[in-house]
Design a protein around this nucleic acid. Structure first.
Length: 311
DNA sequence: GTCCAGGAGCCAT
DNA sequence: ATGGCTCATGGA
C-alpha cells in the first residue's frame, strides 16, 4: 500500500528520543483537537499523545514551539515536522484571507490553529467513518479499529499500549461484521470496499497529489462512501490541496448565519461562494470557521449573528 | 423518547 | 439539477 507524501518511516536508533521544533504562532491544542485528526489524547499535564506513521509520540506546547518525545531514539524528525507543518508561515497564510468580519473574528479567537499533513490512507479511512458522527464518536470508532486491527507500537515504560492505524491490507482481509463491531454501522461496507481497492492497487490515495484539485476530487468520489465533503477533507488534511473546502453541517451553519443571515441559500450557492471568496488558502479559512463555530460563537445554539461586529 | 452528528446513495420529480 | 428518504450508532 502507499504510505504518503513523506515516504520513509521514521528511522530508529538515533541519538535521543526527544526534540524541539521552534515555531511561533502554533496552537497545538486547537490544531490537534479541531476535528482533522482523531487519534490525539490530551494528558492531565497538557501534553498530547498519539501515533504518527506508526510511531508513538507525545507533544507539548512550549514557550517557543513544540516539544516532542518518542518511545525509541530516532535518527530524524522530519516526518513529524511535516505532519505538524511547523515550517508553514502561518501569518503569510492568514494574510491571504479576505478581510471580512466573521473570518477576522475566527482568526482572532483561534490564532495558531494549523492544518496538519496526515497520512492519506488513515485520513481517507477515518473520514469514511465520520459521516453523521460527532467527533467524539469518530475518535471512539477509530480507537477501537486501531486496538483490534492495528499493529502494536513501542511505548515508553508505564504508558498505555498504542497501535498503528490498521493498513488497508489488514482491513481488506476483514469482513463487514468485524468492522461493524467497532461501532461504525452502515459505514462498514464502505470502508471494507475502499480498503480492498487500496490494498490491491486499484486506488492509490497518495498518488492523487500529482493531479489537479478537480481531478483528484473526482477520483476520490468514485470510492463508496466518499462524496464531495469527505473527498475535500482528504484533499485538505492529507494531500495539501489548500483550496479544498469541506462543507459540513458546522461550516454551512457558520456561512449561513454569518455571511447570509436570514436568506435562503442553496448548497450549490454556498459552494460557489466559498470557491471564489476565500482565496488560495480557502481550506485554511474553512478550518478557522469550523473551529470557531464549534468552540466559540456558535456553540450551545448561541445566536451569533455577526461575530466581529457590523458588516 | 427525541434529536442530532465534520454524509452519501438512491429515487422521484 | 434538486429535494426527500434511509442507512447505524451513541450521547445529550
Amino acid at each position: 500500500m502507499s504510505v504518503g507524501i513523506c515516504v520513509e518511516p521514521p528511522a530508529q536508533h538515533g541519538p535521543v528520543p526527544r526534540t524541539h521544533f521552534a515555531v511561533r504562532g502554533y496552537d497545538l491544542a486547537a490544531t490537534l483537537d479541531s476535528g482533522q485528526a482523531f487519534r490525539w489524547r490530551a494528558g492531565p499535564d497538557g501534553s498530547w499523545t498519539g501515533v504518527v506513521r506508526g510511531c508513538w509520540v507525545r507533544l507539548r506546547q512550549t514557550s517557543d514551539g513544540i516539544g516532542a518525545e518518542a518511545a525509541l531514539p530516532l535518527r530524524h524528525w522530519h516526518w513529524l515536522a511535516d505532519y505538524l507543518q511547523v515550517a508553514v508561515d502561518l501569518d503569510a497564510v492568514l494574510a491571504t484571507f479576505p478581510p471580512d468580519p466573521p473570518l477576522r473574528a475566527a482568526v482572532r479567537a483561534c490564532y495558531g490553529l494549523r492544518l496538519l499533513r496526515q497520512e492519506p490512507w488513515e485520513c481517507l479511512a477515518s473520514f469514511i467513518l465520520s459521516s453523521t458522527k460527532r467527533i467524539g464518536h469518530i475518535r471512539q470508532i477509530v480507537e477501537r479499529l486501531c486496538e483490534r486491527f492495528g499493529e502494536p507500537v513501542a511505548v515508553p515504560p508505564g504508558e498505555r499500549p498504542a497501535y498503528a492505524f490498521p493498513t488497508a491490507e489488514r482491513i481488506a482481509r476483514l469482513n463487514a461484521r468485524a468492522l461493524r463491531a467497532c461501532g461504525m454501522g452502515f459505514r462498514a461496507p464502505y470502508l471494507l470496499e475502499t480498503a480492498r481497492r487500496v490494498a490491491d492497487g486499484r486506488f492509490d490515495p497518495a498518488a492523487l497529489s500529482a493531479l489537479g484539485l478537480e481531478a483528484a476530487r473526482a477520483r476520490l468520489c468514485e470510492l463508496p462512501g466518499v462524496g464531495a465533503k469527505i473527498a475535500d477533507c482528504v484533499l485538505l488534511f492529507a494531500l495539501g490541496f489548500e483550496r479544498a473546502f469541506p462543507l459540513d453541517v458546522w461550516v454551512q451553519r457558520a456561512l449561513r448565519e454569518w455571511y447570509f443571515p436570514r436568506q435562503r441559500v442553496r448548497p450549490a450557492a454556498l459552494r460557489a461562494f466559498v470557491e471564489t471568496h476565500f482565496g488560495p488558502h480557502a481550506g485554511y479559512a474553512q478550518q478557522y470557521l469550523f473551529h470557531f463555530m464549534r468552540t466559540g460563537a456558535g456553540r450551545a445554539s448561541g445566536r451569533a449573528p455577526c461575530p466581529g461586529g457590523a458588516r
